[in-house]
């Protein structure tokens, strides 16, 4: 064909069109609900909300503007998430690779694992007090077990034939770890990173609602407490948007690092 290639195919244009229609329909139903039901007594209309959303970029809510609130939450998440990911990968690899480490850690881990991150809030406050460290701790506990589980799963699913292949080719024990165990676990680690990221993001909101005076979690609670529901809506929109951006950034990184794995292609 001599025609220049369009950047979108017919299918993807249709998908986009339907997506936009869906959003318009959603906003329309929201508007109708505000106009004709009780919902409108407590809840702002879409137009008011969107206006408030853009205003929040320049007008502070509480002590900060919207972007600062988001930045604060983001920093908290990233610190807690980074700590839990590093610790989770190390412990997961250890448990997956060494039978002894597994025997020692697994029973304790089994008890800790089902406890949601937010269940640690009261203990953390008593123990560490109110402050950033408490929030980091809660986020850490939120993501940690998922990182451990996924990494351990990866290390346990190691293809032992490949270990043999590497040994026949002359690899030493320490090289087996860095050249076989670690790379073959990476897709599992990424699955852990994905799920742990969303629970970390949940954990920061919960922690902020209880122990902070700033951040996206505080924003939605303050919106309720002060009767400024638009602030609540703004907070929720930003939470959704940030969560989406974080998840897609991570997916891109995975696609780059795991080009070889069929899952990411």
């Amino acid at each position: 064909m001599t025609m220049p290639k369009l950047s979108m195919t017919k299918d993807s244009r249709e998908t986009l069109l339907y997506g936009i229609l869906g959003i318009i329909a959603f906003l329309f139903v929201w508007q109708l609900a505000c106009m004709y039901t009780n919902f409108g007594k407590i809840f702002p209309t879409p137009l008011v909300s969107i206006r408030a959303f853009f205003l929040a970029f320049v007008q502070p809510i509480g002590r900060y503007t919207l972007l600062s609130h988001i930045a604060i939450s983001l920093r908290r998440v990233l610190v807690g998430y980074a700590l839990s990911s590093v610790a989770g990968v190390i412990i997961g690899l250890l448990m997956g690779y060494s039978k002894m480490a597994y025997a020692i850690i697994y029973p304790i881990f089994c008890i800790i694992r089902p406890i949601p991150g937010i269940a640690w809030i009261p203990l953390a406050i008593l123990w560490i007090g109110i402050g950033e460290s408490t929030i980091y701790f809660i986020i850490f506990m939120g993501g940690f077990s998922q990182m451990v589980m996924n990494t351990m799963d990866g290390a346990q699913n190691l293809d032992t034939e490949l270990v043999g292949v590497a040994k026949v080719l002359g690899a030493q024990e320490n090289q087996i770890f860095s050249k076989i165990v670690l790379p073959s676990t990476i897709p599992y680690i990424f699955t852990g990173l994905q799920t742990s990221l969303s629970t970390s993001w949940m954990a920061v909101l919960a922690a902020e609602m209880i122990t902070a005076r700033e951040g996206a979690g505080w924003l939605i609670l303050a919106g309720m407490q002060t009767g400024r529901i638009e602030n609540n809506v703004i907070g929720m929109i930003s939470i959704g948007a940030v969560g989406l951006v974080l998840a897609s950034l991570l997916r891109n990184l995975e696609r780059r690092l795991c080009r070889w794995s069929v899952r990411s292609r």
Partner: peptide
């Protein structure tokens, strides 16, 4: 089963022995 290292390219697989 060929038992290639799936995370390595053709080059990465072939040079694995000399590399280690």
């Amino acid at each position: 089963t060929t038992a290639l290292f799936p995370w390595l390219t053709v080059m990465g697989n072939v040079e694995f022995g000399p590399k280690v």
